[in-house]
């Protein structure tokens, strides 16, 4: 079993014919099970009617949806048009939308979040490595070198650190049910709390690892969620940026909120209070799960 994406999910790519879309979709098609790894179509405005990587290309998401009934869409569109691509996928009612695009403007994401409020779509990203169901489906740009199927669910704010944790887990014989990159931007789609609910309801997930960092409110929201009622599965959290000077913005680590939230100390205290076991390094995550 998996969370969010089933092992036989049908997948659409918005921006399939671009450089990034072509590069990553080719890898993802080869990774997934079945002839096309679950990929059923692409969308590129103005290129409807052609075939690309053996997949039919449509002008709009609605046309692609009517013709191929996808369960999910992966957005590889450039930042200036990424929000419109997300809005189009939401409007077409696609259940799961993954956006890997980096540098999407904040106010564009405010518009997208507004559209999500009245929809049934779960958005993952933007600035996300995507969703991996080891051995079955790859929606995104992450490393697949070390992932193996198993019972650990991972939700993360960082791609490269997820790959590192996955590699350590796999080396210790601990496979993964689903890995979800919620993205590194301040305003994004589903967060840790939503992922925790998905992993709780997934019988294939036995334990959950959260990979967080300083800034933002994800860890605080996860702590609120876990404190509200018994979770029933072990949750481990690895938070990085413990020694980052608070006045510096590092990569996508995010600004420390003007209202005083977002420090690692505060996040750690809240998560511990909610019963989460804290890990300081990827190896610590493995030790915590093994014990």
């Amino acid at each position: 079993m998996t969370a969010l994406i089933s092992s036989d999910a049908r997948i659409l790519v918005q921006g399939l014919t671009g450089n990034a879309g072509t590069f990553y979709t080719r890898l993802a098609m080869a990774y997934g099970t079945g002839d096309t790894g679950g990929y059923v179509a692409g969308v590129t405005p103005g290129k409807g009617g052609i075939d690309h990587l053996g997949l039919p290309v449509f002008d709009t998401v609605r046309e692609a949806t009517q013709a191929t009934r996808p369960d999910a869409s992966v957005i590889m569109a450039p930042a200036p048009v990424a929000a419109d691509a997300m809005l189009e996928a939401i409007e077409a009612g696609i259940p799961t939308v993954v956006c890997v695009t980096e540098r999407v403007p904040v106010l564009d994401m405010v518009r997208v979040r507004d559209a999500l409020r009245d929809s049934d779509t779960a958005l993952v990203g933007p600035n996300s490595q995507g969703i991996l169901v080891p051995g079955a489906r790859k929606l995104g740009v992450m490393s697949t070198a070390d992932a193996i199927p198993g019972g650990i669910g991972i939700a993360a704010r960082s791609a490269s650190l997820t790959s590192e944790v996955v590699a350590r887990l796999s080396a210790a014989g601990l496979g993964q049910s689903t890995t979800i990159g919620i993205g590194g931007d301040p305003i994004h789609g589903i967060g840790f709390a939503h992922c925790l609910a998905l992993f709780r309801d997934d019988p294939g997930t036995e334990a959950v690892v959260l990979i967080g960092e300083l800034g933002g409110v994800e860890e605080e929201e996860a702590a609120d969620f876990l404190a509200a009622e018994p979770y029933g599965k072990p949750v481990i959290a690895l938070l990085v940026g413990r020694h980052a000077p608070e006045d510096r913005r590092m990569g996508h680590a995010g600004t420390v909120s003007v209202l005083g939230s977002g420090s690692i100390a505060q996040k750690t205290a809240l998560l511990e209070l909610a019963g989460v076991r804290m890990a300081a390094t990827p190896d610590d995550v493995v030790r915590a799960l093994a014990s």
């Binding site: 490269s160 650190l161 300083l214 590092m250 990569g251 300081a280």
Partner: peptide, 9 residues
């Protein structure tokens, strides 16, 4: 960024 922060820590 995440691996960068982790390495730094």
């Amino acid at each position: 960024a995440g691996l960068g922060l982790a390495t730094h820590d």
